[in-house]
Design a protein around this nucleic acid. Structure first.
Lengths: 177, 177
DNA sequence: GAGAGCATGTAAACTGTTACATGATTCA
DNA sequence: TGAATCATGTAACAGTTTACATGCTCTC
């Protein structure tokens, strides 16, 4: 299960509470890499703690618990990240699915959907350019690096999809069918 | 559930058997958009048939059944594709997750992983350039268009990730940390 | 003191994967 | 005729989501 590794990874960068981790998923990780809600995060943190891969390092207001990775957790994360890229990860992305199914629509409908995609990706890219500017200059590894990696990845992704959508519209316009 | 829409979409482009659909998932859809194995595809086809969204149009050798979308199925697919992009599709992609967690590694390890990513994406892009060449010239909608859309999307995706990996390596090399 | 947001949790329902299972057809 | 591949399916299990549930703390 990759949720455990996602959590180990976030905690390896920076200790956090389940609540904070949930926010991270909502804002960055979950948009690109792995979606998860608090109802899967909290039980998983408990399981990781039982396995000795994370530990509670502080308890704060409103019953909040700050978790950090243990040495064993860091080792598990490292070996997972360095493990040879195993065959065919299981991808699931509804947005991309919509794009792939566009050719099932008639050209008029397809054009509408593509225009939406082009618009949304342009907006997303603009947003991330600001995020990137805010993160610029920090060290590459550690919390700052995480933000930079994520922002740059997302930005390039948005740009690629944006250009793909424009290309597709062009094809449609040129297509005699 | 998006699996049903993935199946409707593929069948809207071209009628096919469960077996053929399974191949489509392995080769294109499943690599980028939505992963599914035959054990989820067959039951789902039966459920779609019960709901009247697809129907068996031919039975062939070895008990194979060719499915096609009905008018109701096409309408359901269309309304799903045109439906306003609802909040936060649920993304799950282990490859991308690995990329995001890179900053949890020390620079030496991160460099190794990034080099692998750069290599794999370059190979993937090269492969898709050939696929694209094979599909070139056909009509944009319909079966040919599907191949073109997918190949072009995948190619641009590979290129974007490849360039991102090179960028990240550059950052690492420049980073004093 | 009321409301927003912090912070965590459980349980049932749903979805998807793994392992198991079967038989037909083609090709060497 | 044996191996590979076509073609479909079930059942147990694992993982996720949805709905429900609770209480604390800060700010106005």
């Amino acid at each position: 299960m990759s949720l455990s590794h996602a959590l180990l990874g976030l905690l390896a960068v920076e200790p956090a509470s389940g609540y904070a981790l949930t926010k991270s998923f909502e804002e960055s990780l979950g948009r690109w890499a792995w979606h998860a809600g608090h109802t899967s995060i909290y039980p998983e943190l408990n399981r990781l703690a039982e396995r000795g891969l994370v530990e509670v390092t502080a308890e704060g207001a409103r019953g909040s618990r700050t978790y950090a990775v243990t040495a064993a957790g860091r080792e598990e994360l490292r070996s997972w990240l360095l493990r040879p890229p195993q065959q065919s990860g299981k991808v699931r992305n509804e947005e991309v699915l919509r794009m792939f199914l566009l050719s099932a629509l008639d050209p008029g409908d397809a054009r509408v959907v593509l225009a939406h995609i082009a618009e949304n990706t342009a907006a997303g890219a603009a947003e991330l350019r600001e995020v990137r500017a805010a993160h610029a200059g920090g060290s590459f590894t550690g919390p700052e690096g995480f933000g930079q990696l994520a922002a740059e990845f997302g930005l390039r992704q948005y740009q690629a999809v944006h250009e793909w959508a424009l290309w597709a519209i062009e094809q449609l316009d040129a297509d005699p069918a």
